[in-house]
Design a protein around this nucleic acid. Sequence first.
RNA 1: GCGCCCGUAGCUCAACCGGAUAGAGCAACUGCCUUCUAAGCAGUAGGUUACAGGUUCGAGUCCUGUCGGGCGUACCA
Length: 559
Amino acid sequence: MKARILAPRFIINLNMQEYLKEQIQKALFKLDPGLQIPEITIEKPRLPEHGDAATTVALALAKTLRDNPPSIAKKIADLIDLESGYIQSVEVAGPGFINFRFADNWLSDNLLDIHQLGETYGRTDLFEGKKIQVEFVSANPTGPLTVGHGRNAVLGDTISRVLEWTGADVQREYYFNNAGRQMRILGESVLARYLQLIGEDTSLPEDGYEGAYITEIAQTVREQYGESLTGEEHQPIFRQAAEESIFKDIQRTLARLKITMDSFFNENTLYEDGSIDKVIEKLRQKDLVYEKDDATWYKTTALGKDKDTVLIKNTGEPTYRLPDIAYHINKLERGFDLAIDVFGADHIATYPDVVSAVKACGYDSERIDVIVYQFVTIVKDGKPFKMSTRKANFVTLDELMDEVGADVTRFFFLMRAPGTHLEFDINEAKEAGEKNPVFYLQYAHARIQSIMRKVRESFDFGTSSPDFTLLIHESETTLIKRILEFPDVINQTAIHREPHKLINYLNDLATAFHKFYHDCRILGEKEELVKARTELLTVTATVLSNGLGMLGITAPDKM
RNA sequence: GCGCCCGUAGCUCAACCGGAUAGAGCAACUGCCUUCUAAGCAGUAGGUUACAGGUUCGAGUCCUGUCGGGCGUACCA
């Protein structure tokens, strides 16, 4: 499913795009019936003077027609049929752009449709019927979630929500491993703290976990089992206690962020059901695996890398890469049309190996997609923090939410493209007022609800349709145009898996609303106008609350 | 050394898989509340898109090279 290729370009609304394309095709046919028609792209001009929509076909046709673009554009423009439908005017401008301006009833007709759709406005059928899995967080239970995990969690959940709005059936999965080296060290660390608690003079193992939570877990083990677990043979009890306690904490943290996983997948499953062995076998059949120095290697050199990769160490223990491959095959076998991974930049190296191996085993690796996000720098008082889970000098996600709240936390993780380094400025995030971009959106919603309360005190409009043709003020039409973009923004966000596009859009929408609020009054106008403007605000509020809902951020009625 | 990501206003970042005059927020400066929330609106100022070439009607966007930053490059995950 390569949706990227099918991506429609940003345009004022999807139906209109199709309509324009048809009109242009007709004109081109009239121009030259034998003409090979190139792909027609419609885009929204940056400047309002350039109309509501524009196409560059004339520029693209310059070579085949051996004519200069403005001249071609002129010919096409003259052939566009203005009599039927929603096009009010066609102009040629600049180096050969054809600009369209839409008729007035286009806005009011569309707004009426949206008004009738109500709260479902924005839902699309882009991924209708598709089963999509989004795997994210996937932190092993060795400690509390950190700020780094936060970006992963919020990205994964928001992308899931957006995909659901485009019709997909989404499963949120958390992949973990509770058997490896890190977990062993975790158990040893708890044991060491336990021994210290009951007065023995031991120190933490080398590379042990130093966080205070380790001592707390040791304390609960002591309360539950007493002080007799001093022997090495009791180690599994400590490891298990740690795992349970940490997992509970992780889920509590996720719940604060409004994240609920649908499934937890234990890496162990892949050993138990033989998937791991099967992968090795298949790769061996393809002659992509060999033994050297008591280890099992994957011939990544055959696929263009400069080194081969170890799949099974000489200790007999697989490296993480092998289960990763088996895991992704498992996902595809579960029938997902698309399996999305959310990875931090540090994991990116394994991804090409996993994909190539999955492909070599005969599966459609096109159905795997990876979102790589760059690291988060926490900045406080103008200074950055450096973080490490093991050394315990991290900022936990919980601490961050204690400081700035869940809404702000989600917003800040989403406001930048995943591929860019994110600077999380605690001081800016804590600012409760105008400096904080979250409030700008929430305030717009609260402001609308406040007017609605006032309107309801003096009016009771029946069920008759509002007359949206009354909305002709410039602030009204720009607001309506913004509203019309919403479904396409959702599609773009889903296709590129970049939630910041939705945030930027909501910002623009809020700006258009605030401007409208400033320019146009509601109370005190004639009843028909009051009604039309009130319903415009109803639709605006719907878009805001749907959009904020996709971001997992509350849309307050009062502030 | 090699691979991937990044480099845009003083700061943090946008820019719709190549389109018209590169946009927001913050910081600075100036206006706007006796009427629906001023957590708002309007305006001023701020740029050789790191640098050098190339591709074409057209490049912040694509290609090559240089410089600067991040992450990988483990029989750690």
